[in-house]
Design a binder for these strands. Structure first.
Lengths: 300, 300
DNA sequence: TCATGTATCTGACTTTAGTCAGGTATTTCC
DNA sequence: GGAAATACCTGACTAAAGTCAGATACATGA
């Protein structure tokens, strides 16, 4: 597979040179770049030191600590012990800090205007459309698909979306006791995957031995795909098929040669996706009242 | 005029975070960022210290000098007095430097692959198209239009394109004696403008008193637009009209109330542009054998 | 409860990045 | 031919960015 990178590289060259941007806009604010980024991220919602560290791409803890001290001495941020976990420190902007944040925001805005103002409205519309498309695709390309314990908050959040969507909502919400634990979806019986973009779940799905209920006989060769969900905003971006490939690979790894799954007629995109991925229609194999379509694929 | 900057800002946020990129790709090469950029630009064709300084956005000369010494001591670049001007120093990559350059190139390529590889071919095509569009528009927005002496190398280069295109090429090329000097296109009789992107001329045009030849009477109220040229790659980007507005403003500043110009039937886009800009057809007013259409606009 | 791990901090350091004030050839312009 | 401008250099400096080795307080799980 040969991939032509020239357009992207040309774009990077010229765009980064012109927009270096977000970056440079932080300068001239009186704060050094790193410190300004810390302040900006706090304003954006970072709540703890750790939060800041991950958002800024894993900076040294001592380094961050020092920058926070500097922001505190300038009166821009205040810190406080986290009552829930005394090791953690909560960080918030003071009133002055908020002013400073607004200033950064204004600079960033000005920077964008510098680029947009010389264009005609038609050109601006074209540019916006192009950037939105590029943004979506670049986000799609950087999505990570990771196995997580179904009890993990990320998994619970994803399943929350899933259940909300199929209308099978239970009487509790995420954050309370969660959607319970399904041992069949974690090792050694199965695996649950969450696809995330910028730390937020955008798709999820699990694979498990089939069936795990006591009603049927256990078939060592067959696995079942469950709770597959793709954020509506992300549909049509090829994310579903990518996740499906992950789940199939996992089924193989767990020793199965066949996968089954059920879905509903209203999910037309999903049905199309399964068909394109080589799934064949089979008869109903369970008594799930929400399911209308049943599929099967021979993996090997 | 309200301009919505949100799409661009959202894009910058997410793209720069993911692709910081060109930048980060320079790291891990064993060279500090600034030094790596110097080496990279030399490989890209920078020939003198001054050339490097302008390409890198006006770095301090001492700073660049020091980085060059460091690259020399590592055996990556060699410098030499410019025989044509003893003050200048020519810089070239050594064999080792070329290897290092290839390494930077490879890192940059890898970085682009990281984003493109997870996408399907269709998605890659969409991304490429979006980035190319964004690139063109962003370049268009950052074009600068400056008055220059017609004898200036930039002006000579632009006029070279102009004459080559209309087939009136003289018997000499730019770099020799140039396209001669037309005093009517420089103060106090007129002005010549060059629009440049990344230091290269992409459009040009001049305005002067009409007529400046001895064959007609001098009309103090009327100016003439001459040698208007837009790089073929840039046509349709609104650059022509932008330049035209500059020329009209300059004509006013020079004390004229009317502008005239001639053009040729084959330049259909240009003719459309003049009409949209409020120019009206008039009778032939000179004996230019290449001109077929004549226009006039009342400025005030 | 005790070992182990986590979240943050302090101090001591190094490297980069960048500025500023001269200085030395060399060229250009009158 | 001499003054002014140009192209590059050196030295002395500052601030920012980042690393590393502990220290401290708190949380967690057997």
């Amino acid at each position: 597979m040969t991939v032509d990178t020239s357009v992207m590289r040309k774009f990077n060259m010229s765009y980064v040179r012109r927009v270096g941007a977000l970056e440079e806009s932080f300068l001239g604010s009186g704060l050094p770049y790193g410190t300004a980024r810390i302040l900006y991220e706090i304003g954006l919602g970072a709540e703890t030191v750790q939060d800041l560290r991950t958002r800024l791409g894993g900076l040294d803890s001592g380094y961050v600590s020092r920058m926070l001290r500097s922001l505190e001495s300038k009166g821009f941020v205040a810190t406080e012990r986290d009552p829930a976990d005394g090791r953690r420190r909560l960080v918030v902007l003071t009133e002055d800090g908020l002013k400073q944040w607004d200033d950064l925001e204004r600079r960033s805005e000005e920077r964008a205007h510098l680029l947009l103002d010389p264009l005609t409205q038609r050109q601006r519309d074209r540019l916006n459309e192009a950037l939105a498309t590029a943004d979506l695709l670049v986000r799609a390309a950087t999505i990570t698909i990771e196995p997580v314990d179904p009890r993990d908050p990320m998994a619970q959040e994803a399943m929350g979306h899933y259940f909300a969507e199929i209308g099978e909502r239970f009487g509790f919400t995420v954050g309370d006791e969660g959607f319970g634990d399904d041992p069949s979806l974690r090792p050694p019986h199965g695996t649950f995957f969450v696809a995330a973009s910028d730390g937020a779940p955008v798709a999820s799905g699990g694979v498990r031995e089939f069936p795990s209920t006591s009603s049927g006989h256990r078939d060592e060769r067959t696995a079942e795909i469950k709770r597959m969900w793709v954020d509506p905003a992300w549909r049509g971006a090829g994310l579903g098929s990518r996740l499906l490939r992950h789940l199939e690979a996992e089924a193989l790894r767990l020793g199965h040669q066949v996968v089954r799954l059920d879905t509903r007629d209203v999910l037309t995109e999903a049905i199309g996706m399964y068909e394109r991925a080589g799934y064949e229609r089979i008869d109903r194999y369970n008594d799930n009242p929400h399911a209308t379509h049943f599929f099967r694929k021979q993996l090997r």
